[in-house]
Amino acid sequence: MCEVELKKENIVYAKSSLMLDNVMHYCPGCSHGTVHKLIAEIVEEMGLQSKTIGVSPVGCAVFAYNYIDVDWAEAAHGRACAVATGIKRLHPNKMVFTYQGDGDLSAIGTCETIHAAARGENIAVVYINNAIYGMTGGQMAPTTLLGMKTATTPYGRDPRLNGYPYKIADMLAHLDGVCYITRQSVHTPANVRKCKKAIRKAFENAMAGKGFSMVEVVSTCNSGWKLSPVQANEWLEQNMLPFYPLGDVKDI
């Protein structure tokens, strides 16, 4: 084995200086790590570290504050958009974003999410939708697909028993306070690049005072889905994307 000296001009990729070295608690293959990396890169590229305040949820991303080197508030379950509202109203020139999962945002936090959007709060919301409660052990979420097996739908989600999944992104898009809603994924390199552009746009909107922006990231939970990382990416394409199609839902 020979040592190769890397020349600075040959380096095409480096870890964002805002990504901390704490060992991540996320499972291998999980989408959270990728989305965290994108946020760290975007904050760094926009030069916003000293202006950024993140709001972490209850759920797997509760510890987001251990990984991205900005100020954070950890919100009660579902309340991130209300917490972010309080921060942003008092600091209108700061970059305030929430990072929430589907249980947090579209179940227990539905009310806080809808009203922050309706008021047109100038915040960016990063919404990780993996159709399951990850942290608590893989229970049904409002986003769980019909027929999908979870810890609380062991025979598959049955609409007569469990109701139907819903697309909160499409609902929010109808609200006047909302300027940007998009649905992205990070299961391929091309999708990661698109997702980064989308999150950056949401952050720019929040700083420009254009209103409420949300980037839904259709994500994998390979542990909860009981699939390998590669199988989970395939399952996402075959099952999640037909119900949660990628692309902009609203952009004004």
Binding site: V55, A76, R79, A82, V83, G86, K88, R89, C111
Partner: peptide, 13 residues
Amino acid sequence: IASVNMLYGGAAT
């Protein structure tokens, strides 16, 4: 519920 969590966000600053 929202107002007390807005309070939490504001107080956190």
